[in-house]
Nucleic acid binder design. Structure first.
Lengths: 114, 114
DNA sequence: CGGTATCCTCCGAGATACTG
DNA sequence: CAGTATCTCGGAGGATACCG
């Protein structure tokens, strides 16, 4: 486990799905195909610039697909690629551990309060 | 999967083990108990300040244990707590996905070069 | 509607020096 | 040996305005 490959692989994963917005965006896209405005509405705190930027990076990494409808007004749909579906299990494990950790933190807080 | 809890749990995990240095530190500590200087030597690029800072945060989150030997010269040992052992599986999944992604990226590169 | 293009802010992280 | 204490800076991320 301590080998170099292991460590660099972990860092690769964090480069692709880490950061402030990507995990959230990916969670939303696991629900299905979404339009740009739809994603924006579901994440009110993200700026248009950041949403565009992060989506472009995920697209470059092959995780998501960007489908442009050439029409007026424009319509753009985002979805996980078949390959992109594979991060689901990573998100799942991270979510499970996070839930456990949240619970633990709450318990520690209340034991101090007592 | 798309529920609020799921998303916040993923973010919680990234807050605890994400960032530039924590995954690396944790990988090293999965190998066993390490002294401060030992970790520093194994990660030459990290500054003393960042190493200390990140270790403190991991300690606060209950992931690692800090054992101080009151002696001169000082000796401090770091190790995963029993609870901390549980991030192993998270790191494992992330590493597996990362390895897969690295391979995929290499293949895409070479298909362009051709 | 789904973006660019600029400009700006803030803080994560590095460099360096000092210390119990 | 294992740290603090400052100072500094780049770049991630935000605010705002404009565009096809």
């Amino acid at each position: 486990m301590g080998d170099l490959e292991f460590k660099s692989a972990v860092e690769t994963t964090l480069k692709v799905i880490g950061g402030k917005w990507k995990p959230l965006i990916l969670c939303h896209l696991t629900e299905g195909v979404k339009r740009f405005g739809e994603l924006k509405r579901e994440m009110p705190e993200i700026t248009q610039k950041m949403l565009t930027q992060q989506l472009r990076e995920l697209e470059k990494d092959g995780i998501i697909h960007r489908k442009v409808y050439t029409q007026v007004p424009p319509k753009v749909e985002y979805s996980l690629t078949e390959y992109g579906q594979s991060i689901r299990e990573v998100l799942d494990v991270m979510s499970q551990w996070g839930r456990r950790h949240q619970k633990r933190m709450r318990e520690m807080d209340s034991s101090i309060t007592k």
